[in-house]
């Protein structure tokens, strides 16, 4: 007995490509997985599109990655048996930021604050981006998850 599952990968892919054209790069590495790559500025629009057209409400988590040339903020959404990994590319700059998706999906609150704490990516438009994960006396501008963070000196083994 193997259960069958509805698969909406193709539909989502088409819808995103029609709406955003060249701005998005959509991959479908395996069934029920959709990897979407966009620039930072378009990420909010993509989330809005998914929310309004497809009823997206669930965010699993938001991963921040320091990919040397740039930062990546990956939103892991889940929509009707499909996981959408929305990758927003954030250029390396003094104060990196992304648009906050808090107003569309309130469940993203903690993850946006966690990324701000650990990777220093500011969620623009978040009502209360106060410190969440790190202690109160942790120095400002000290982001442990960045690759240039001196981990060995700070005692991570």
């Amino acid at each position: 007995m193997v259960r069958e599952y509805k698969n909406i990968d193709a539909k989502l892919k088409e819808s995103l490509e029609n709406a955003f054209g060249d701005k998005v790069k959509v991959e479908n590495p395996r069934p029920h997985r959709l990897n979407v790559t966009v620039s930072r500025d378009d990420a909010l629009e993509v989330v809005k599109h998914l929310n309004e057209k497809h009823g997206l409400t669930y965010v699993s988590t938001i991963t921040g990655v320091d990919a040397i040339e740039h930062y990546e903020v990956i939103y892991h959404f889940f929509l009707e048996n499909t996981v959408i990994n929305l990758k927003a590319i954030v250029p390396k700059e003094e104060n990196p930021w992304v648009h906050s998706i808090y107003h569309i999906i309130p469940g993203a609150d903690l993850y946006e604050r966690e990324n701000k704490d650990l990777l220093g990516i500011y969620p623009k438009g978040h009502p209360d981006p106060s410190r969440q994960t790190l202690p109160e006396d942790w120095p400002e501008g000290d982001y442990p998850l960045r690759k240039d963070w001196p981990a060995k000196e700070r005692g991570i083994r």
């Binding site: 699993s60 988590t61 991963t63 990655v65 320091d66 990956i74 892991h76 309130p106 469940g107 609150d109 903690l110 993850y111």
Partner: peptide, 24 residues
């Protein structure tokens, strides 16, 4: 979430536990 750069160590490993999701 696991990312590998082809080496022996994970480039990035992200953990999100269920409690975090339920806190709000």
């Amino acid at each position: 979430y696991v990312r590998s750069d082809g080496g022996e160590n994970p480039y990035r490993a992200k953990v999100r536990a269920p409690t975090m999701q339920n806190l709000l």
